[in-house]
Design a protein around this nucleic acid. Structure first.
Length: 818
RNA sequence: GCCGGGAUGGCGGAACUGGCAGACGCAGCGGACUUAAAAUCCGCCGGAGAGAUCCUUGUGGGUUCGAGUCCCACUCCCGGCACCA
């Protein structure tokens, strides 16, 4: 009898040994092909819950599998550690953000180590340390140099509770992503990254293996619209501008324009509103400013607006068009002005009805007789009331009108994107300071590279004032101009944490390199990332930003690839009590207690077995015991003595061995392809089946000792990525050389995996009637003959006429009768 | 409203490219071992029926020799976007 299986002792023993031997440290100097397996690094919000483990354990299994397959695998880990959480802790509990963050990291690192992953801890990256954020600042300077970072006044999303600006992506249902508080609009001077310059490239995903839905979501987020820009003539006393340009996807409806609408914030409004309308217009602007994003975006809300008293001319037909303002027009999209065609746009229709503005049909619906429309007609049709374009199908008209506009110099074909520039300023302390200086003489001056990093002062005061503690820190703010040496002020905003995480995958290749953000040779060796796994919630933020960064620095010549990640995979969410786990809901499950109870291998395996990785699932620990039992069975299977039954029939033995090798090789094939496709749940099931099969084989005792030993070794090798601790222990116990994790992944032999005998399914009219064991080499004629010869089948053929017989090789015969 | 994804036993799920529905595990039931329990091992385990057999993959239709898988319509659930001109 084997000694009792003690998973906790085994976990401890091998984690210690692997660490001592630096088994998982990787270097660039390897003859093996490289494989960069990246898992999204965690945000340092406290401790890890099983959601993190669900992201990390299966990805480690995949990385270990690649390692055994002969790849030189880089599987790094680090901490995304700037951000609001730490600062709020400072305000609420009086702990310095640095201290709080480092405590969290210590705890999270301990938890991560207990997973038993192949993380190379010598490459750990912490974004909030100067040795890292120095390079975040350096990238900022590079973007600035290349006109991809700029400062501008903009209406921004402001969270009154967090007292900071939010990116569009951080506004969820009109509320703050973090605290849910309604977001309001404020005009502030802010730093932006010109991500829109890459809009076109960001909707291309050629040559990368990403989930279809992620690509679609990114495309939708970028929101490309094709149409035309049209100039409307403006002639207003005292206004310089002689035109207002609008963007439209429907230039074919331009003859139907009966009014124009500007966003209330549009700069022209104040200048051309006539005295009669001034009071009303100002009141409307004030009202829409007061509204929160939630109110303003409510689709329930009836569209309203006010007339400015100003007019423009529709150049296509010379008509005077009244100009209104309404808050359903957004300043930030297109030109902040729209031409309104009530006959062919639902919103314009409702607006025109409400204010008694004429509705003129210019696209004829089928069988239209000139009657009034009951609702906007937005489908294609034939152009009418459109001068020389009458009779043109509207879809042709789109291009024809745009061409005509271009010819006349009144506009032309145009493309607009929904994507806006990335606002990166945060009025907060715990972030990478933006390395800029304001000089009275020289204006905005970048901090010279050699002066980086701009360090966060340690002695800041944390008060909930709405401004960054940096603003009050005289020692930080007051500096000298790098150009003229006159007294100057530092920028006190810090960068959005998403800036830090936009390039961390580059830092892992040379985390301690201090003369550049990354060592070029090592970057060339490791990148791009071969597989990146993480949650789908990062699709339109992190994953878009990472691609933008990569393309931007490619164009600077720093790297020579444009896509950071070759293959992307999203694991699903672990939920508890039917909801996503979160601290505020109090349904967070901590993995530590399970690990100290059952051992880490059981927990790792349970995450894989739960269901398809991309689907996630409910955390239900009742299934864990099944995994534990299985590990125990493996232990006994491998370590209890094998007794070959003497006096067995020699021919029987060889047949049993043939069966065993077939089963083993089929399992190798299945486990290998499942691991390649990250189908962990069925991989575990296949390993359980092999275990069950070996248990039976062992009882029968008909296998020769060498064949048995070989089968057991294969089982252990196949288990090694999933249950690294137990596999290592068993590998040693059966007398093999350390370490199982340095062994080659088993290869299957198609010849050995092939079935000699198959079960031929016989159907009559598509219904299962018999199963016949036949040789795999059976011919079509033989199969049909056997099928027709079956007694069970014959009873269903009695008195019937056979219409045809379908044969699917190796599978079935279907006899169709009438 | 628009764009994705999904629905299979009591439960989690399996089923390659249209070919044996329910692999594997959990729970349950029965048995062995035990003074007993736990642990372990063996067996049963979608529904109806005495049985032959029939029914069964959210609902309704269709294509096909054959549909969980393909097509059409619908219901519900999850995720994303939401006045984008």
């Amino acid at each position: 009898m084997a000694p009792k299986f003690n998973p906790l002792e085994i976990d401890k023993k091998w984690q210690q040994k692997w660490a001592d031997d630096r088994l998982y440290e990787v270097s660039e100097y390897s003859p093996r092909p490289k494989y960069y397996a990246l898992t999204m690094f965690p945000y340092t919000s406290g401790d890890l819950h099983i959601g993190h483990w669900y992201a990390m354990a299966p990805s480690d299994v995949h990385a270990r599998f690649r390692r055994m397959q002969g790849y030189n695998v880089l599987h790094p880990m680090g901490f995304d550690s700037f951000g609001l959480n730490a600062e709020n802790a400072a305000i609420n509990r009086g702990i310095h953000p640095y201290t709080w963050t480092m405590q969290n990291i210590d705890n999270m690192r301990r938890q991560l180590k207990s997973i038993g992953a192949i993380y190379d801890w010598s490459r750990e990256v912490i974004t909030s340390l100067p040795e890292y954020y120095k390079w975040t600042q350096w990238f900022f300077l590079k973007l600035y140099e290349n006109d991809l970072a700029y400062r501008g006044k903009a209406p921004v999303n402001w969270c009154p509770k967090c007292q900071t600006v939010l990116a569009n992506e951080q506004v969820v249902n009109g509320g703050c992503e973090r605290c849910g508080t309604a977001v309001s609009q404020q005009d502030l001077e802010q730093w932006f990254f010109r991500i829109t310059r890459y809009a076109e490239e960001l909707i291309q995903h050629d040559g990368i293996d990403w989930p279809e839905r992620t690509k679609i979501m990114q495309r939708n987020w970028v929101g490309k619209s094709t149409g035309a820009e049209i100039s409307f003539a403006l002639d207003h006393p005292g206004v310089e501008e002689k035109e207002i340009r609008v963007f439209t996807t429907r230039p074919d409806t331009t003859f139907g324009v009966t009014f124009m609408v500007l966003a209330p914030e549009h700069p022209l409004v104040a200048r051309f509103t006539t005295p009669d309308n001034k009071a009303e217009v100002e009141e409307y602007i004030a009202k829409s400013r007061r509204q929160t994003e939630i109110e303003r975006l409510s689709t329930e809300k009836e569209k309203d607006g006010v007339f400015t008293g100003a007019y423009v001319i529709n150049r296509l037909n010379g008509e005077k068009v009244p100009v209104w303002i309404a808050d359903y027009v957004l300043l930030s999209y297109g030109t902040g002005a729209v031409m309104a065609v009530p006959a062919h746009d639902e919103r314009d229709f409702a607006f025109a009805k409400k204010y008694g503005i004429p509705i003129r049909v210019v696209i004829s619906p089928p069988e239209w007789q000139g009657e009034e429309l009951a609702e906007a007609y937005i489908e294609p049709g034939t152009m009418v009331n459109s001068a020389q374009f009458n009779g043109t199908p509207s879809q042709e008209g789109i291009g024809a009108v745009a061409d005509y506009l271009a010819e006349k110099g009144w506009g032309g074909h145009a493309v607009t994107y929904r994507l806006r520039d990335w606002l990166i300023s945060r009025q907060r302390y715990w972030g990478a300071p933006i390395p800029m200086v304001y000089c009275e003489k020289c204006g905005i001056v970048p901090v010279p590279e050699e002066d980086l990093p701009v360090l966060l002062p340690e002695d800041a005061q944390f008060k909930p004032t709405g401004e960054s503690p940096l603003t009050y820190h005289e020692g930080f703010v007051n500096t000298t101009c790098p150009q003229c040496s006159a007294p100057a002020k530092r920028e006190t905003d810090t960068m959005d944490t998403f800036v830090c995480s936009s390039w961390y995958f580059l830092r892992y290749v040379s985390p301690h390199y201090d003369t550049a953000a990354f060592e070029p040779d090592k970057m060339k060796y490791w990148l791009p990332v071969d597989i990146y796994t993480g949650g789908a919630e990062h699709t339109v933020m992190h994953l878009l930003y990472v691609r933008f960064f990569t393309k931007a620095i490619r164009d600077m010549g720093l790297i020579d690839f444009g896509e950071p990640v070759t293959r992307l995979f999203h694991q699903g969410h672990i939920i508890a009590e039917r909801r996503k786990m979160s601290k505020s809901r109090g349904n967070v499950v901590n993995p530590d207690e399970y690990v100290t109870d059952l051992g880490v291998d059981a927990v790792r395996t349970y995450f894989m077995f739960l269901g398809p990785w991309e689907q996630g699932g409910e955390w239900d620990d009742s299934g864990l015991s099944g995994i534990s039992r299985w590990l125990n069975r493996i232990w006994n299977l491998v370590l209890d003595d094998y007794n070959q039954r003497s006096g067995s029939d020699p021919s029987g033995i060889s047949e049993a061995e043939r069966e065993l090798s077939r089963f083993t090789h089929q399992t190798i094939r299945k486990v290998t392809t499942d691991l390649e496709r990250l189908r962990f749940n069925v991989m575990v099931a296949a390993l359980m089946e092999l275990t069950n099969y070996l248990t039976k084989v062992k009882e029968d005792g008909r296998i020769g000792r060498p064949a048995w030993d070989e089968a057991v070794e294969t089982l252990i090798l196949l288990l090694a990525p999933s249950i690294p601790h137990l596999a290592e222990e068993l590998w040693q116990q059966i007398g093999n050389e350390y370490s199982v994790h340095n062994q080659d992944w088993p290869l299957w032999d198609e010849e050995l995996a092939r079935e000699d005998e198959i079960t031929l399914v016989v159907q009559v009219n598509g219904k299962l009637r018999d199963r016949i064991a036949v040789p795999a080499s059976i011919t079509e004629a033989e199969a049909k003959e056997q099928a027709l010869g079956s007694e069970r089948v014959k009873t269903y053929l009695q008195g019937k006429e056979t219409v045809k017989t379908i044969y699917v090789p190796g599978k079935l015969v279907n006899i169709v009768v009438r």
